[in-house]
């Protein structure tokens, strides 16, 4: 679709790393540290990812849902907004925005199926609909989000390395376990992923990078953050974060019940 990132609310709402990493006061009172705060966001991102696979929506819906989730917690606390309920609600809202609607009851069904042993994840349809209203308020009703996938394809074709599409796409998917989408423009994230892919696949596109009117230092810094993420968090591809790490943190958070 026709769009211009530079005049969008997404561009205007870009934050600094410091603002994103700020723990809300209510959560801090409960003893949640910055590291634990990050772990909860990673865990719930994984939760959205698994739930999306069940309801069979496209990657862009997942990306939008994760962006909504992380943006909410730059303004609201996890104490007030239970992340267990906010995650499926973001997916529900994103499916509407991206015009791939998913029924709320279908989500309730799959949540029960996935989290049978944990009653804290058990919600009803009305719970989701109520949270949707709150979520819209928290997001100030700005629901359009720009993702790196579209510039990624454009840049790969221009550089002449379309054979790295899958590899770079995978790296972009992994960036949604982080807050990069709230900090940097989409094309910068795409360039960083291409930068990592070209190095790992031994593609010499130095001349192409030289011609770009872009600050390569920023691209390098983004690349380093991505690599630090891979080095710090040993995530299981299927189960996500280890249970022994995430369970204590989730217990600190209150549940609606």
């Amino acid at each position: 679709m026709a769009a211009n990132f530079w005049t969008s609310s997404h561009c205007k709402q870009l934050l600094d790393q410091e603002d994103v990493d700020k723990v809300p006061q209510a959560d801090s009172d409960r003893g949640i540290t910055l590291e634990e705060f990050r772990l909860v966001k990673i865990h719930m991102s994984f939760h959205i990812w698994r739930l999306a696979q069940q309801v069979k929506v496209r990657q862009r819906v997942i990306a939008t849902a994760v962006t909504y989730f992380r943006r909410v917690y730059t303004r609201k606390s996890m104490t007030e907004y239970d992340p267990r309920l906010v995650a499926p609600t973001c997916l529900y809202l994103a499916s509407k925005v991206e015009e791939s609607t998913v029924q709320a009851r279908l989500l309730v069904f799959y949540i029960k199926k996935m989290c049978a042993s944990d009653e804290k994840y058990r919600f009803e349809i009305k719970d989701i609909l109520e949270m949707e209203m709150k979520l819209l308020e928290a997001l100030d009703y700005y629901l359009v989000v720009y993702h790196p996938y579209r510039p990624l394809l454009q840049l790969l074709q221009d550089a002449g390395i379309t054979d790295l599409t899958q590899f770079a796409w995978g790296i972009v998917n992994d960036t949604y376990k982080m807050d990069l989408i709230l900090i940097h423009p989409p094309y910068m994230i795409a360039l960083a992923c291409i930068y990592i892919a070209s190095v790992l696949k031994d593609k010499d596109i130095t001349l192409w990078f030289e011609e770009l009117r872009v600050d390569m230092n920023i691209v390098k810094n983004i690349s380093m953050e991505i690599l630090d993420f891979y080095d710090t968090y040993k995530i299981d591809p299927q189960r996500g974060l280890p249970e022994d790490k995430i369970a204590p943190v989730m217990n600190k958070l209150p549940s609606k019940a």
Binding site: A2, N4, W6, R150, P151, D158, P185, R213, V214
Partner: peptide, 11 residues
Amino acid sequence: LNNKLGPPDYY
């Protein structure tokens, strides 16, 4: 960005 590509994130 360069001669062939237009402004980034602009469609």
